[in-house]
Design a protein around this nucleic acid. Structure first.
Length: 124
DNA sequence: CGATTGACGTACG
DNA sequence: TCGTACGCCAATC
């Protein structure tokens, strides 16, 4: 993952953690339209398989990052839209996904396997 | 500076 | 199959 030294040096991530967050953002931005991936998959791709929570934590700050991160394409292992509450208004995340032709029922991505985009495989 | 807290995931009973 | 326990590691209290 090219850290791509993004120059938006956010004071809050000016440490070595900056790399991790930047990598997360970079991967998420690489998710093709109409596809989704999971926190765990991203964590695994970054080498810290058990740090899936950190990926979620990174997304927590994603809203203040530019260019924008398509966080709505990141769901949990079950395809559940666990982070929808972070999108301002409830249902917005689902709306964004459906706009990309991804069916969402009961806050869950339908046919997840078909839309799943694994960075470990895609960026191999 | 120790305790708590997550947009998670796996292991276990 | 379902619920609980725990690890992961930075940020926040």
């Amino acid at each position: 993952m090219s850290s791509s030294l993004n120059r938006y040096t956010y004071n809050m991530y000016s440490k070595n953690t900056y790399s991790f967050f930047d990598n997360v953002y970079a991967v998420v931005r690489l998710i093709p339209k109409g596809h989704v991936t999971s926190y765990g998959a991203i964590a695994a791709y970054l080498g810290s398989k058990g740090s899936s929570r950190m990926v979620g934590w990174a997304m927590n700050s994603a809203h203040s990052v530019q260019p924008a991160v398509p966080a709505h394409r990141v769901v949990n292992r079950n395809g559940l839209l666990t982070g929808q509450h972070h999108f301002g208004t409830p249902g917005m995340m689902q709306q964004l996904l459906e706009k990309e032709n991804i069916k969402v029922v009961e806050n869950k991505v339908q046919n997840l396997k078909m839309h799943f985009w694994d960075p470990v495989i895609a960026l191999a």
